[in-house]
Design a protein around this nucleic acid. Structure first.
Lengths: 95, 95
DNA sequence: CGATTTTTTATCTTAAAGGATAAATTCGGT
DNA sequence: ACCGAATTTATCCTTTAAGATAAAAAATCG
């Protein structure tokens, strides 16, 4: 990461990971044990201060019993979950 | 990545990136110019031989006019879209 | 086929991820 | 406020992502 790039996505993804972890009532220590990552690495990732590798995100996701995709808040998924309108989901357009 | 971990997700994500790039009729050269990544880095990522950072995935996604989440084909979403039985995936973990 | 273009692979260098550890800070509970 | 637990931050070390470049291999086209 070169100073400012990817800032938002690091923070957003870190926050999503933290939400999921807390939702499962886990501490960093437990997640560290489950994922094999260090507590400090997890802390940095969750606070958006580190730029994790894809395999790292995958290890975290698997440890939390979820998939990497859930860390990227996808409005379409929320709509689907809510059993929404049912009308066409246009997944080909983004913002 | 330590030998075998995250193997599948690297290949799957790389393939998704390649699909999206080709769908837009771009070559590695063009995507390299758009994203600021080198052609070799993109080739390695698309063929699942490199473990990209989150910010790298984000740069690629933005260059392709999409979001990182689209690189993770979410079976749950596909099933929901198709209105399937949902056999196999537990969506309650997303509530 | 031969020539051009695209993609892959290799090598080298720099910067950053991630582990280990410890210290500092913050948060809860009593 | 105190104490203990959880989290953050810092330092040191090893590994690896990513840039640059070149060369090899594949695909595309005449």
């Amino acid at each position: 990461m070169t100073a400012h790039e990817g800032e938002k996505i690091l923070e957003q993804t870190g926050a999503a990971i933290r939400r999921q972890r807390l939702a499962e009532g886990l501490g960093l220590k437990e997640l560290a044990r489950l994922s094999g990552l260090s507590i400090s690495a997890l802390s940095l990732i969750e606070t958006g201060k580190r730029d994790p590798r894809l395999s790292t995100l995958d290890r975290i996701a698997k440890s939390l019993g979820t998939k990497v995709s859930t860390f990227f808040q996808d409005p379409a998924v929320d709509e689907l979950k809510a059993g929404s309108t049912g009308s066409g989901y246009d997944l080909s357009e983004f913002e």
